[in-house]
């Protein structure tokens, strides 16, 4: 056939185009510069603030005074005179107050955390050492080491603010913002609304709620 020259030309052209395309593709691979940023002086950084724990200093008596205000008692009113039961770990044996307290926190007893020596107004570590309110996390960390470690590295516990502390501060949750010390399990609750897809995903009847 006459066309063999044309065929050859076309094949050569095709190979040339392929080679060109391969070349362009190879050049497209981009390099990301990985450079370690300059370490900043801690003093230059904005602070990471902790939510302050809200502590009880009074307890409600359930009664109302003549002005209609609820009558409250300070912890010392009772605990300065009563002898603590070192074995008690529930509200059951208590005669007055704390009746509505549900306690579900392992095998702990009241005085595992509450310090009887300070008339229950402050806390203590397992060693007996007293803990100031601002260091309360140490108390939790005695048992929950891994969680405390994760917390320290920002991988446990909610936060708001800045990831970049050179630009602004960060506010962090305290353990007890989410975990009630008396029943620390995160409670179940209804989630926010799900996606309202025009064609919702198909689920076999009965396998999903």
């Amino acid at each position: 056939m006459k066309v063999s020259a044309g065929k050859t030309l076309f094949t050569v052209g095709l190979i040339a185009i392929s080679a060109l395309a391969a070349q362009i593709y190879a050049n497209v691979e981009k390099n990301v510069d990985v450079e370690t940023p300059v370490r900043l002086n801690q003093a230059d950084l904005f602070p990471v603030n902790l939510n302050a724990p809200k502590l009880l200093s009074h307890v409600s008596t359930g009664q109302i005074d003549s002005d209609g205000n609820p009558i409250q008692l300070s912890c010392q009113s009772c605990h300065s005179v009563r002898v603590p039961d070192p074995k008690n770990g529930s509200q059951g044996p208590l005669l007055s107050f704390h009746q509505d307290l549900d306690f579900v926190h392992g095998k702990l007893v009241c005085i595992s955390c509450h310090n009887p020596e300070g008339s229950f107004s402050n806390f203590r570590l397992a060693s007996g050492q007293s803990v100031e309110p601002e260091n309360l996390m140490e108390l939790c960390a005695q048992c929950h080491g891994p969680q405390f470690r994760d917390y320290q590295h920002g991988s446990h516990g909610g936060m708001t603010g800045y990831w970049d502390l050179t630009k602004g501060p960060r506010q962090r949750n305290h353990c007890i913002d989410c975990h009630d010390p008396h029943q620390p399990a995160f409670p179940q609750f209804r989630p926010a609304a799900g996606p309202k897809d025009r064609f919702p995903p198909h689920h076999e009847k009965g396998t999903h709620e």
Binding site: G161, Y162, G168
Partner: peptide, 13 residues
């Protein structure tokens, strides 16, 4: 420098 909205909303961290 701020955190993303989804992270700030996360209650559990």
């Amino acid at each position: 420098g701020r955190l993303p909205a989804c992270l700030e909303a996360c209650p559990t961290g």
